[in-house]
Simulated assay, not measured.
Amino acid sequence: MKILVILPNWLGDAVMATPAIELLSLHYPHARFTFIGSYVSIEALKHHPLCERAIVDETKKSSSRLFATYKLAKELDEFSLAVSFRNQIHSSLLLRFTSTVICIARSSWHSKLLLSHTPKIKTDKHLVEQYSELAMINTDHFNGESPNLKLYIQRKKFDRPTLGINAGATYGSAKRWYPERFAEVASSYSDKYDIIIFGGPNEVEMAEEIEDNLKALQIKNYTNLAGKTSINELCSFIAGCSLFITNDSGPMHVAAAYNVPTVSIFGPTRYKETSQWKNEKGLIVRHEMECSPCMKRECPLKHHNCMKEITASEVIEAVKELDLKD
C-alpha cells in the first residue's frame, strides 16, 4: 500500500508528526511511504524504514508554483492514501493532482474544495495529538493514544557525558533566551559534562556569544558546532547528549525523540501544544504572563519579560530536579 505524506515545514513540527506516521505504519502493515517536505523535514525523516521515496518540495522556487505543483504530482506514483500535515493551498492542490481518491488534510476552504477528507481538528490539545487524529481520520481503530516520537537516525556515542546547549529558535527572537544565561548554566555543569553549543546557520553569532561568555568564565571543555552540522549530524549529536538545555525549538523535539534529559525554556508560545511529547525526563521553565502566549516572532510590547525574567538560577535548579529523577 503506497501512502503519500506531505510533511510539515519546520523541523520540530516534522518530528511531532512522527507518531502519526507510526500509527499509519501500524494500521497499514504493508505501507510504503513517499515523503514530500522541506529540506530539513526530509533530512530528518527520510531514514524511516518504510520510506521508499523522499522528495524535497522546491515548487516555491518556480516562476509558476501552480504548474510546478502539477508537474510534481504527475511525476509521482499512484497512492492508496494521501495525507497532508500542511494547511496550505499548494499542498491541497498537490494531493488533488495525484488523483488519489482518499486525500486527508485539516479543514480549510481549499481542502474542502479539493479533497475527500477534511476534518476539523480542535487545537486545544498537543500538536502530536492533532496530527495523529488527522492521519487516522479514515480508520475506525484509533483510540486517541499517540505513540512516542520516533526518529531513525543513529545516536552519537560520546566519550564523556555531554551537555547540549541550544540557544536558537528559528521561528523568531521572542522564543530565545539569552546567550550569557545559557553560558552561566553551562559553566555550572562544566565539571560534570563536556559542552556542545548547537545552532543553525543563522544562529552562529548567538553561539559565538555563548562561546565568548564561556571563555570569560574560563571554561574550556566546549565545542561550538553552530552552523557546522547537517540535519543528520544535528539529530545524532543531540541524541547522544546526557543533558540538553534549549529554547522551544526543533532541536528540543529531537531531544524528546531520544528521551534525552531536557530543560526547555518557554516564553511566548503555547507550551501545552508544543512541549516535549512523552519525554519523562523533560522539564519546562516558564513564567505565567498576562501577555503570553502571544505567539509572536518578536515581542510586540518590546520588553520580552516572558524570557527576560527567567534567571539562570531557575534553569540550574530545574537541572537539579532532573538529576533527582534519575
Score class of each variant (00 low, 15 high):
residue 151 L to T: 07
residue 151 L to S: 05
residue 152 Y to Q: 05
residue 152 Y to I: 06
residue 152 Y to T: 06
residue 153 I to D: 04
residue 153 I to P: 06
residue 153 I to Q: 04
residue 154 Q to P: 04
residue 154 Q to T: 12
residue 155 R to V: 15
residue 155 R to D: 09
residue 155 R to T: 15
residue 155 R to P: 03
residue 156 K to L: 04
residue 156 K to I: 03
residue 157 K to A: 15
residue 157 K to L: 14
residue 157 K to I: 15
residue 157 K to C: 11
residue 158 F to L: 03
residue 158 F to P: 02
residue 159 D to L: 07
residue 159 D to Q: 14
residue 159 D to R: 06
residue 161 P to W: 01
residue 162 T to G: 00
residue 162 T to A: 00
residue 163 L to W: 01
residue 163 L to T: 02
residue 163 L to E: 02
residue 163 L to N: 02
residue 164 G to Q: 00
residue 164 G to H: 00
residue 165 I to R: 02
residue 165 I to A: 02
residue 165 I to Y: 03
residue 165 I to M: 05
residue 166 N to S: 08
residue 166 N to Q: 12
residue 166 N to P: 01
residue 166 N to E: 06
residue 166 N to M: 05
residue 167 A to P: 13
residue 168 G to D: 00
residue 168 G to F: 01
residue 169 A to R: 02
residue 170 T to F: 04
residue 170 T to W: 01
residue 170 T to L: 07
residue 171 Y to F: 11
residue 171 Y to N: 02
residue 171 Y to H: 04
residue 171 Y to P: 00
residue 172 G to H: 01
residue 172 G to R: 00
residue 173 S to T: 13
residue 173 S to F: 05
residue 174 A to D: 01
residue 174 A to Q: 01
residue 175 K to T: 04
residue 176 R to F: 04
residue 177 W to S: 07
residue 177 W to Q: 07
residue 178 Y to G: 03
residue 178 Y to D: 04
residue 179 P to Q: 07
residue 179 P to K: 09
residue 179 P to S: 13
residue 180 E to T: 12
residue 180 E to R: 12
residue 180 E to V: 10
residue 181 R to F: 06
residue 182 F to P: 04
residue 182 F to I: 07
residue 182 F to A: 05
residue 183 A to R: 10
residue 184 E to F: 07
residue 185 V to E: 04
residue 185 V to L: 09
residue 187 S to P: 08
residue 187 S to D: 06
residue 187 S to I: 10
residue 187 S to Q: 12
residue 187 S to K: 13
residue 188 S to W: 13
residue 189 Y to C: 07
residue 189 Y to E: 07
residue 189 Y to Q: 08
residue 189 Y to W: 14
residue 189 Y to I: 10
residue 190 S to H: 15
residue 191 D to Q: 14
residue 191 D to W: 13
residue 191 D to L: 14
residue 192 K to Y: 14
residue 193 Y to L: 09
residue 193 Y to N: 12
residue 193 Y to K: 08
residue 194 D to Y: 09
residue 195 I to E: 08
residue 196 I to F: 12
residue 196 I to L: 15
residue 197 I to S: 09
residue 197 I to A: 12
residue 197 I to P: 13
residue 197 I to E: 09
residue 197 I to Y: 12
residue 198 F to Y: 11
residue 198 F to S: 11
residue 199 G to P: 05
residue 199 G to N: 09
residue 201 P to E: 11
residue 202 N to R: 12
residue 202 N to S: 15
residue 203 E to V: 10
residue 203 E to L: 05
residue 203 E to W: 05
residue 204 V to P: 02
residue 204 V to N: 04
residue 205 E to H: 13
residue 205 E to Q: 10
residue 207 A to S: 11
residue 207 A to P: 02
residue 207 A to I: 01
residue 208 E to L: 11
